[in-house]
Amino acid sequence: MLLGRFAYLVPVLAIAGGLVTKPRVPASSGTFPTDRPLFVGLLIGIIIILGGLQFFPAPALGPIVEHFAMLAGQSF
């Protein structure tokens, strides 16, 4: 549990440290705008797909299978 909490902090701090040393780049039409629906959609899409892919097995064996079982008239 501690590992799950803190092991993720270290790389995130490393990313933050890395970003600090990067120079600021002025925006141009070659820059990806982060205030448009495209960025919002992309971010949400990535979170849903990657999150879904990591956690799908657990709900599939829990709530999802129970839901199908319940529809078939079987309950635990």
């Binding site: 097995p57 599939a60 064996l61 999802i64 299978v65 199908f68 079982a69 078939a72 079987q74």
Partner: peptide, 17 residues
């Protein structure tokens, strides 16, 4: 691939999948 493999893993335990 999840839709392919997860149902295939539990044909006996969870045929509902």
């Amino acid at each position: 691939k999840y839709f392919t493999i997860i149902p295939a893993l539990f044909p006996v335990t969870y045929p509902q999948l």
